[in-house]
């Protein structure tokens, strides 16, 4: 499969953007249903995006302007890029990159968000950026440890080989540890101090306006696809060999993950920064360490 196809069509832009919007809508809709509300209509994220892109941009100092343009674009590009590495199809483009590149690309968006927060010179933006940075460090310890366990168990850093070779016990524990990391990476409820909309006005996003916010929303949608896609594609070792069947299986698994994450988010209240960090270093890291130990001895 050519890499342009992976980047632009599947699982890249053309698949990821509508899928991300669907996931954002599903998240809001499920949350609404859990609260007996009717929730937003189906097309909501799409119209949000169109509206945000055509709002009149505020004039900013010329030095800042380039960063406000580059950082959201960089975040979007890197996250879409990370999608191309997912081992969905037997002939996926994962040949051109591996686990290390995936982790690097997925981490670009949080780093851009931290930079945007500091750039805003708003107290809320800076507080949000500090929280985002702290949580990124907190979550990456179990995230990377779990991936290392998987890589060690399957004897390769290639995602395709991990997906097909990882032993069951290690795979189960490591994927659970990865699932632990998703709410914080997607800034979902129990761990949403970084973009708390009530306390710090969405943190680093406070000063984003118009199309900058629109691009950020798009990045967030693609982040949903990439991170839920990582677990969905690593969960099943079996590949049918037929592209369409594999893609549908992958998409359905991703949506199931969205439902699980949203229900957890709807049932929990926001933890404090220290509580969230402690949770990750204790339970998340403990689980990832267990996966590592299991992979060493099995």
């Amino acid at each position: 499969m050519p890499s342009w196809f992976a980047l632009l069509i599947f699982p890249g832009f053309l698949y990821a953007v509508p899928m991300g919007w669907l996931m954002l809508w599903l998240e809001r809709k499920i949350l609404a249903r859990l609260q007996s509300r009717i929730g937003p209509p189906f097309y909501q994220p799409f119209f949000d995006f169109i509206k945000l892109m055509t709002k009149e941009p505020l004039r900013r100092a010329s030095g800042e302007d380039i960063f406000y343009l580059l950082l959201p674009l960089l975040a979007l590009g890197a996250t879409v890029g990370s999608l191309t590495l997912l081992p969905i199809l037997p002939s996926s483009a994962s040949a051109v990159g591996d686990l290390v590149l995936f982790v690097a690309l997925v981490e670009v968006a949080p780093i851009c968000l931290v930079l945007l927060g500091f750039l805003s010179r708003s107290i809320f933006g800076q507080v949000g950026a500090i929280r985002e940075a702290t949580l990124t460090i907190a979550t990456n310890l179990p995230f990377i440890t779990a991936l290392i366990a998987l890589a060690y168990a399957s004897g390769s850093l290639r995602l395709m080989e991990i997906a097909s070779n990882a032993p069951l016990a290690t795979r189960a524990i490591a994927l659970l540890a990865l699932l632990f990391c998703l709410p914080i990476k997607l800034r979902l409820n129990p761990f949403s101090v970084a973009n708390a909309e009530q306390e710090i006005y969405q943190g680093a996003l406070t000063e984003l306006d118009g199309w900058r916010l629109g691009l950020w929303e798009l990045t967030h949608a693609v982040e949903w696809v990439a991170l839920s896609g990582l677990i969905a594609s690593l969960a099943v070792p079996w590949r049918s060999g037929q592209a369409i069947l594999d893609a549908i299986l992958f998409a359905l698994l991703s949506l199931v993950l969205v439902v699980v994450l949203t229900v957890i988010a709807g049932a929990t209240a926001r933890l404090k920064l220290l509580q969230a960090s402690r949770f990750y270093w204790r339970w998340g890291f403990g689980l990832a360490l267990l996966a590592l130990v299991v992979s060493l001895f099995l």
Partner: peptide, 15 residues
């Protein structure tokens, strides 16, 4: 439920 009209209550006037 204002969300049925696609309304979101935002924390920042920029949004």
């Amino acid at each position: 439920d204002v969300e049925q009209l696609g309304i979101r209550l935002e924390g920042s006037p920029r949004h």
